[in-house]
Simulated assay, not measured.
Amino acid sequence: MKLVSLSFSLSALFVSLAYADNYTTRQIGAPHSKNYKIYIEKDGIPISPFHDIPLFADTTSSTMNMVVEIPRWTNAKYEINKETPLNPIIQDIRDGEPRFNYNIFPYKGYMWNYGALPQTWEDPNFITEESGTIGDNDPIDVIEIGEKIGYTGEVKPVKILGVIGLLDQNETDWKLVAIDVNDPNASDMNDISDVEKKYPGLLNDTIDYFRKYKIPVGDGPNEFMFSGKAQDKEYAIGQIMTTHNHWKKLVSGDIKENNIEKTNLLVEGSPYKVSPNSKIILNIPPVNLLPAVPIDPKYERWYYV
């Protein structure tokens, strides 16, 4: 595979760079319910975490913005919703009910902060050479291994360290490995080889978890590219830039995906850009956070697989 150089014009990114401290969340509905939504706001105005938050968090292109969907040690399967205008974070639905991931012994929920890089898209029309499978139709996933527990909707600047090539339901589902730039260990973490030095066993446990985590719902074990070996930073950057280029074609209208909401406020040149005074923005309800719905006890059990 030919890797993509980072020495490109920043104007090609469509949007100016922005920093994580500009972002807040607007929560609507009851957590753990079908009506719960978390909108991301910039300066108090709802924006799309899929389209409006820049991929890069600094002018050196060495730090990337991660949108946290699932905080460490939690089970609720929150994700950026592609079908709703401005792509709020919602709880995924499976078999008509809010989805939770099971506790696979000895793992309690997710062992890292889990989320996605904005302005990326794993195109389901694109076949990955290394796997021979199509993309999973989502922004590229990130596991963030720093010590601070994030929160759903947090925009976290991270350093990319490498990538795991997961094959999930016969789709390519990259899992980037990253660390918060503000983590105490961040200065010592520069590539995938540093993960084992600083966090021995973490990568092996991550592979083990992703292999097993859908077995309790009746799916088989997942498989991996490269026999489960995590690839280095250079390779990971190549995959990020591939998915970023796919996103650019999507949001510019070059790729027609009718099931994906492409409404945005900040992507220059996009035919889907709207004004902050548009009805789509003004019709988003104000903050209305309700008490969380109790979680079914089955999601608190250990599952031995």
Rank of each mutant, 00 (worst) to 15 (best):
G269A: 12
M64Q: 15
W247S: 00
W112Q: 02
L117P: 10
A76W: 15
H32W: 15
E97D: 12
N87M: 09
E171Q: 14
G238P: 06
A186T: 06
M241C: 00
L161A: 01
N204H: 03
K82A: 07
V274G: 02
Y23N: 00
P271N: 01
M225F: 12
N204K: 13
P139C: 06
G201M: 03
W302M: 11
K82D: 01
D123I: 09
N113S: 04
L86R: 00
W247P: 08
N137R: 03
E97L: 12
N277T: 08
N277H: 04
G115R: 01
N81P: 07
I143E: 12
F210W: 06
V155D: 11
Y199E: 02
L86I: 06
A30D: 01
P200Y: 00
K279R: 09
I45Y: 05
T128W: 13
V163F: 05
D52W: 13
V217L: 14
K156R: 08
N101H: 15
P216F: 03
P49T: 08
Y209M: 11
I255A: 11
Q169N: 15
E257W: 12
I237Y: 10
I47W: 00
K37V: 14
A186E: 01
L176T: 03
N283S: 08
I38E: 04
T128V: 13
V267T: 13
T60K: 12
H246D: 13
K42A: 04
N65H: 03
P54R: 04
G201V: 04
S62M: 06
Q231E: 15
N264H: 10
T84K: 01
L6Y: 13
I28A: 05
F14I: 08
L266V: 02
K229P: 00
R211F: 07
L282V: 03
K108G: 11
F56G: 09
D183G: 01
I104Y: 09
E234A: 14
A178R: 03
D173Y: 10
A116E: 07
F100D: 05
G132C: 06
E129Q: 10
I281M: 02
P46G: 04
V155W: 04
T24F: 06
L167K: 14
T59F: 15
N170S: 12
L203A: 01
V68R: 01
A20I: 00
D58V: 14
V158P: 02
E130K: 09
H32F: 13
L6T: 13
L117N: 07
Y151A: 04
P285W: 07
V274Y: 03
I127N: 04
I90A: 13
L6K: 14
V4W: 11
E69M: 10
N22H: 00
